[in-house]
Each structure stands twice: as structure tokens, then as C-alpha cells.
Design a protein around this nucleic acid. Structure first.
Lengths: 404, 404
DNA sequence: ATAATAAGTTCGGTGACAGAACGAATTAAT
DNA sequence: ATTAATTCGTTCTGTCACCGAACTTATTAT
């Protein structure tokens, strides 16, 4: 139903672009072989892309029999996207070009005043970075914001985001679009983390993936069958409320979440306090455990025990091929090793668990991934909602970190 | 990448078919308006479809100004599919025509000898039904088998299907294809149940749906974002192993599943026995509860309490818009009412829970749904894996049940 | 009868491809 | 140095799936 634009050209154009993006400098003849389209068609499409400024000649092949081929590659600076990871304590902003190169990255403490202040802060960061790299604003096509909570695309609001002041009452999407002057996508930060790990981290090539971010709170992002799972109200992955760990019918569990009460920061410090009588922050608990402190070791054991159960629950429901741990607690090897040992004791099928490879930058890289995918789709592709493009990993591996 | 067939025609053809399937008898002019394709194109496509025998003229419009229109509709008996719900105790077989009408249905106890005997039994049932309705075998294009366990399309085996003897060792898919002589799809029965309820039952129009089948065992089917969730090893929805209810680290939980040990048939009878000292079957427990038996009521309360937690876990992970209960225990109103009351006490966001509308036939209807979708796609559509066609609900509502 | 209206066809496009043939450029073999 | 083999890229011709406008046909309302 609905008007069908002639999708044929778009479709082919997209696969040509994909071949150029992935194949680096590539000749038209090679694109033809890769895509199965005729040489003639490739020439036409490439001519079009060149005229519009998306690709350019880079050189010629040599050293093989036969005529030399003219090679083409992306015009890297034809378009840029802004990727943002907005956390309760830190904001990270990155700029990415069409070739998936993250070449400007900035991190700074989140403006505690919240609301519009944060939005202005992010816009300033992004534009500073753009100015530093001499990127004209016109070339910025899209911004992707990762934030805790459940962004509702219909209203532009972000629900369940207690960590960020003033976001519950405003239309965050509109505010960002106004401040940045480009189209904005808002996505849950843990969802982006799955995408990030799927693109460049632990989850490469894996279509069924779960990411568990464990720190101050717990959240999970789920990629099933290659698609991000968002759920009916974009609240999928709010696993803090799983009825595991604390008594789920307790009033406090209804507020904080039974599982969160069993595994997150607060649970660990409380557990340590009840064993020793002293209040100690989480990093110190890990340090003490390394020194052989029995109470600290017990805290780690118990936390891992509940975490293993949480992973088992996710595995039972969604059957991911791999579960990636992230967040300040989840990235700890002490937790990972314990969880790996415990899972086979409470779940019958093998579940691979690993720590995230991208650490705290997973969500930022995921934001870049989703933005680039979106950009390629809107510029060159069908506007199919599930159009996944395969982004190249080669260039992207060479990331520069520029902390302000 | 890969050879792109000229997909344009296919695409349009599919939407024309969709309009005809849904719009009942419909004129070419109306199809044009519906699809946005030009009248001329519609005429061409319809001419093609008519020549190939998929649609036919049915009459003319009248009573309005302007020229009368020739209306077209599906040739209902142009193709058939076999839908099978293979359970541990019962086999259901149905035949469906292209217009989504289930017009022959048979149910009979599963052959206890298992393995090839079951396959032959199903083939016999299907062919008997076909003969009774004078359906030539050539017109049967596809069979969809719903079965417990995790069918592995790569090997054709069904894993985790302890209820059906002899299926673990054989290539079930091949055996069915040989016996039936048509292409066969095998799918988990609970997954089909979600599709069934999504098509004609409680879940109509809902894209994020969970189905929990509770009886001898527990299983769940998940539809997220309109797609069936199967997981990495097709084991998604094996929620019996959620670490909820019994101690998940107990050896018995590893075998049977902690959640299954807390909510399924065996759990209820055991619970009743520990309270009263007498062993009573599940239906009797419900009867006793209706009579006011305190022990029976306590059993229902406790079972519902664990079930509510299980639903909370699924809701926390996947955030479905609605959770549908099925299975001999799940369909009971006594359970539903208790669960509805308990969920708000252990989960903070609203979760709609309802009993399935299709009862025990959900999986069978789901099998028809997936088969019809597949058939429409392969015959008229792009072979996109996610091509969902919208099946009409009107005709399908008029189902006949023919129990042998 | 005549106007209005809707259905359907005919006719003449167009754009996105494919495929064959051919020229152009290069290396390898003689 | 010449020739053969090979590969690149273009030109030319053709097909297919569409669209839009104009036109014919059939019907009801006036």
C-alpha cells in the first residue's frame, strides 16, 4: 500500500555505495562483480554519485594484466554526523564522517543544572569540535543522542530518566533539533552500546546479542535477529525491575527494581556495610577484594551470583548468542570470571559472556553506527526501516580520542 | 550485494495481491487508488495474475454514477497449505486455502510410538482431509508444522523436545518433506501461538506481544517489533529455565528449570500434596478451589504469584504491550484474575495480561498464518525475509472445526 | 437528451537496468 | 618489437516496469 517510489534505482545505488564504502578504493569493474549489476549500470550510478559529490576518483590500478582501472572512493567529508552519549555524570560528543571515521571526540562533565543547559552544552561541544576540524555546519546531516531512559519518538520526551534533571517535562527531541539545527535521533544509551559492540567490539557478526550495563543502575540492550529490540514503550531492557535478587513485592523493589537492588552500586556498598559495618565505595571494595578481604570477596561472589541469574533470565527469554557486560561494575574482570563460573550452575545451555571491548565508549560508537546507517539509508537507500548497511570496520578501528 | 532480480514488478504484484486479498471483490480502479499505482499498471498486473490463475472476475459493481467496474477476487482454491500443531498428546491438522479460510481441521491423539510414525500419521490425516475436500495434491504448496522444542533449520532436527519420542535423532524436516511431498517449515508451537493470537486473537494489531503457554511445561513466544524472536539457537522463550521460583542453583532446576518447577502442572500438584497430603490432578485442584478448599486456593495464589514474577521478568526484558496466557493452566480465569492483581505489586509499569482467545488452537492458526504469509511472499512478493503480509481477518473468522 | 462521473484502454513516453560488441590500455609470451 | 591475452570501460540496442494524458465506454442524475 502507499505510494511506491520507483525503488529500483535507489536500491542499486545503495549497494554500489556499500561496495565503495567497504571496498575502499575500488574500480567500477570490481563493483560490477561484487554487486552483480552490469558494468554499464555501475558506470551510470557512479557517474551520478560523483556529480553529487559523494564519491571521487582516487587513482588507477596497476601491476596486473589488462587495462588499468580507475578507482573510486568515498568523499569522506561529504557529510558528518554528531554522536552523543549523554550520561548522568559525563557527556561525550563525537563527530564522524561518511567513511565511518570518528575523528573528533570530546568528553566533559554533564552540566548539573540539567534540561536546556545540557542541550546547550552538547551543542556547544559539537560546534566547537566542528570548528576545530573546519567542518562547515551544512555538512552535518544528523545527530544521534544516546541517553538513559526510554525515549518516546512520538512525543520527543524521555521517560524513566531520573539521572538527568529536567528531561521528563520537556520535548528533548525538539530542543535538540533546535539547538543543533539538524535531524536528531534519540536512543537509549544501552541500546546504542549493543550496536557499538556489534559494530566494532565483542559482538561483531553476532545477530543475537545482549548488553548488560551494570554500574549505578542496571540496564540492558537487546539485539535480536539483527534488530534492536525496543519494546512497546521503548522500555525493553529495563532489567532493573526483573524479580530477581530482592523480594520483588517489597515496596522498595517497586521503586528501584528488585534486580537493581541486588546487583547495582548501592547493593554492593550496602552488602559490604552489613558484613563489616563500614561504608566503602565500590572501587574500594574491588581493591579490598584484591588484597584478600573476605567480606569484599563475599560481596563480589554474591553480586556475581545475582548477575548470573539475571543473565540466565535474559538467556531464557531471548536466547542471545553472547552477553556482553559493560558499566563500571560489569567491566570488572573479577565479576566476569565469577559470572562465567556461575552461569553453568543455574542455566543448562551454554551462554557466552564477555566484557565489552569498547568500555565506556560503547554507546558513543553505537550512536555513530546507527547514525551512519541511517544516513546511508536516507541518502542512498530505500527508506526501509530495517535497512541495515554493513559499515566498514577497517577505518573505524583507527579512532582518535580527544578528551577536553 | 548478490544478484538483484528486478524486484520492481514483484513488489507491485505483491501489493496488488494484498489489495485483492484484503479488499475482497475489488475493481482495478480501486486497486489503483489503494496502491497508488496507475490504472494502466494495475490492468497489466491483474491480467497477468488472471492468466496464471490466481485471481478471477467475479462480477460488476452497480448503483453508483459512472461506468460499472469489473471486480476481481482471489481464486480461493488456487493453492492450499497444511497447518499442523503437533503436541505431546494431540495432533491437529488443518487445511487452508489462499483466501485464509481454514476449512478442514482434524485432531487426533499423537501416535505414542513417536518418530516416523507421527510423521506418517500427520501425512495420512492431511491427505484424508484433502481427499474429503477433493483437493488435488498438486495444489498443496506448503506445510507448516508447529512442535514443541527448538527446530534447527540448518539440520532439520528439533532440539529440546522431550515430549515427542524419537525426534531428537532424526531429520524431522526431511522426513516431513518426504512424507508430504511439499516444502515444510517447522516452528516452535508457542511461537506459532503468538502469531495466531496476533492474527485472529487477543493480539490483533499489536506488534510487541508475548505468549506464555502454561501447562505440563512452560514456554513463551515473543513477537517484538512485528518479528518473531527466535534467538541464536532458536531457544528463545524457553522460560522454564528462568531463575525464578525454585532455587536456580539446585540440580533439579538445571534439569527441569527453576520457573517450570514453580508454575507448571507438577509444581501445582506437588504444592497441593504438601499442604493436604493427597495427590490430586490439576483440574481437580481448580474444582476444589471453586468449592472453597483453602489448600487449593493457596496453590492457585502461589502459582499465580510466581507466574506474575515470570511475566514481570519478560516485561522487564522485552517490554511487550500485551502478555497472552495460554495452555491448560494459563487459560484458567482463576489464574488470570490473580495474575492481574499481582503484577502491579511487583512491576512498576502497566502490563496488560489477557487469556488467549484462540485457546488450544492458537498454534494451529499461527501455523496457517505463517504459511499463508510465506506463500504469498514466495508466489507474489519479494523474497525478503521479513516481508509481512497483512492477512484478512474477515473470512478467517468463519472457521469450521471438524474433529475426527 | 444531456451532463457528470467513473472505469478501463490506448498511446507514447521514461528510467533503470542487461547484454553484446567494441575500443583502449596494459602485461606476458614470442 | 610484435603479437596474444586480458581486463576496463563505453556505446549501442533492447527490455521491462512503470507513469500520465487522452480517449472510449458505460452508467446515473438531471
Amino acid at each position: 500500500m502507499s505510494d511506491l517510489p520507483r525503488i529500483s534505482r535507489q536500491f542499486s545505488q545503495r549497494s554500489v555505495m556499500e561496495a565503495i564504502v567497504q571496498g575502499g578504493p575500488i574500480s567500477r569493474a570490481s563493483i560490477s562483480k561484487l554487486t552483480g549489476l552490469s558494468k554499464q549500470t555501475i558506470s551510470e550510478i557512479v557517474r551520478g554519485l560523483e556529480q553529487e559529490g559523494w564519491v571521487q576518483e582516487t587513482g588507477r590500478t596497476s601491476g596486473h594484466v589488462g587495462r588499468t582501472a580507475v578507482t573510486y572512493e568515498l568523499v569522506h567529508d561529504a557529510a558528518y554526523i554528531i554522536a552523543v552519549d549523554l550520561g548522568g555524570t559525563k557527556v561525550r560528543v563525537a563527530l564522524t564522517d561518511l567513511a565511518c571515521q570518528i575523528f573528533a571526540e570530546a568528553a566533559t562533565p554533564t552540566d548539573p543544572r540539567g534540561g536546556q543547559f545540557i542541550i546547550d552544552q552538547i551543542a556547544a561541544l559539537a560546534f566547537q569540535a566542528a570548528a576545530r576540524e573546519r567542518i562547515p555546519r551544512k555538512k552535518i546531516r544528523l545527530a544521534v543522542i544516546g541517553a538513559p531512559g526510554a525515549p518516546d519518538p512520538a512525543t520527543g520526551r524521555i521517560l524513566l530518566a531520573p539521572n538527568i534533571a529536567g528531561f521528563d517535562a520537556m520535548n528533548v527531541l525538539d530542543a535538540f533539533e533546535k539547538a543543533l539545527g539538524v535531524a536528531v535521533m534519540i536512543e537509549n544509551d544501552v541500546n546504542l552500546a549493543v550496536l557499538g559492540e556489534n559494530w566494532l567490539g565483542q559482538g561483531q557478526g553476532i545477530d543475537n546479542l545482549a548488553y548488560i550495563a551494570l554500574g549505578t543502575g542496571v540496564g540492558s540492550g537487546l539485539m535480536l535477529g539483527g534488530h534492536l529490540v525496543r519494546g512497546a514503550t521503548h522500555a525493553a531492557g529495563e532489567i532493573g525491575f526483573m524479580p530477581i535478587g530482592a523480594d520483588p513485592f517489597a515496596a522498595e523493589s517497586l521503586r528501584t527494581g528488585a534486580f537493581e537492588r541486588a546487583v547495582a552500586t548501592h547493593a554492593m556498598t550496602e552488602r559490604y556495610r552489613s558484613l563489616t559495618g563500614t561504608q566503602v565505595a565500590v572501587p574500594a571494595i574491588f581493591e579490598n577484594a584484591a588484597k584478600g578481604d573476605k567480606a569484599a570477596l563475599a560481596v563480589l561472589d554474591e553480586t556475581a551470583r545475582y548477575l548470573a541469574q539475571g543473565i540466565a533470565a535474559i538467556a531464557a527469554v531471548a536466547n542471545p548468542q553472547k552477553v556482553i557486560l559493560g558499566g563500571s561494575i560489569g567491566l570488572r574482570p573479577e565479576i566476569l570470571s565469577r559470572v562465567k563460573a556461575l552461569i553453568p550452575l543455574c542455566f543448562p545451555y551454554p551462554v557466552t559472556v564477555e566484557a565489552g571491548e569498547l568500555g565506556a565508549r560503547a554507546a558513543l560508537i553505537g550512536a555513530a553506527a546507527i547514525g551512519l546507517g541511517q544516513l546511508h539509508n536516507t541518502l542512498f537507500g530505500v527508506d526501509a526501516p530495517d535497512g541495515r548497511i554493513s559499515l566498514p570496520t577497517a577505518q573505524a578501528a583507527a579512532l582518535k580520542e580527544v578528551v577536553l
